[in-house]
Design a binder for these strands. Sequence first.
DNA 1: TTAGACTCTTGATCTATATCAAGTTTTTAC
DNA 2: GTAAAAACTTGATATAGATCAAGAGTCTAA
Lengths: 192, 192
Amino acid sequence: MYEIFQKYLEEKTELTQEESQRIQSFAIIKKLRKRQYLLQEGDVWKYDAFITQGCVRTYTVDDKGSEHVNSFSIENWWTGDRESLMMQQPSRFNIDAIEDTELVLFTHENFELLCREIPAFNNMVNTILQRSFIAAQNRIQASLTLTAEEKYLNFIKKYPGFASRIPQTMIASYLGMTPETLSRIRKQTAKK
Amino acid sequence: MYEIFQKYLEEKTELTQEESQRIQSFAIIKKLRKRQYLLQEGDVWKYDAFITQGCVRTYTVDDKGSEHVNSFSIENWWTGDRESLMMQQPSRFNIDAIEDTELVLFTHENFELLCREIPAFNNMVNTILQRSFIAAQNRIQASLTLTAEEKYLNFIKKYPGFASRIPQTMIASYLGMTPETLSRIRKQTAKK
DNA sequence: TTAGACTCTTGATCTATATCAAGTTTTTAC
DNA sequence: GTAAAAACTTGATATAGATCAAGAGTCTAA
């Protein structure tokens, strides 16, 4: 499944044959079964991870044992815990597979090496980071300004397709509401 | 007040004399009176802005006319609307001064030129962006998991000093609650 | 220096969403 | 293929925090 990442690279950046091969030489292919962990709370995250197939969630568990979904990532997206990676500290997050999933991993040292060696790659990575930051800002804005119903409508508009492959309980958690509330909202909006 | 930015650069990165001078040659000093806008909704943001003195807020105004504070920035931080800057689209945000404020601005073209010319500068900028992203993630996490009281305590712990220079109404808005609720929380926690 | 305008506080009431509980449907695993 | 486990729905009730209202304290601009 490396081809999917290869294609992604070709779309996002211009690389020479050698650069492409250099990148591929560091790639680690990893497969996850549904429910399998990619990262568990307390572990230090050491990779840059790209999903070629499947779907993964990042979440925390609070004192009462409730899960809070921080994000979903599907094919052609990146995942991981940047805070743990950057600070080299144990992660507060869990990441596990919602579906059988395939990833391309790079150890962070190799990834940084690639960034230093290949300016085009470095630029691509920065652009992704900027977009991620913008997305996070928008999510904060939504959480401050929208009602539960608006949050849901905003979500399905922004990520069509997610609703059908991710359990409602997890979507509710991601949106900061209970599954019951989401169920009622869906019933409401279906009527209209 | 350029010296404050100069000092910041020296702390964060290693630059040659020439590089420092190159950066300074592009710097634009800007002063804002309290309440003055740095950016108004609908305008396209064109700068990278560093605050050397003072305090600024970024906020939106909804249909009902209520303001929602997205962020505060004080001296030694950056401000602006990255989405508007990156996409070259009209901003949804307003940025105005909470106190008399001084900034160092770079037009984005010049800023990008500096990033290309000076690798150390580019690295510094990337590091800041990563930290900003991590902070945004943590804020999302807090908004999903904490009660109003916990959000406030978390805020004053994370940003001691902010509470004394920023009006409570704005802090309440930033935390996603009403001023009345924040007032009651403060009364509660003062008791303990 | 003072009137008007903000800002903060406090109380009474309301409401969106949570919680609890039970039933139904769907998925999973042998 | 089927039993057990999850996931989803629906109703009844509870509650954190919002809204409305009014008074007190603080700025601020002429």
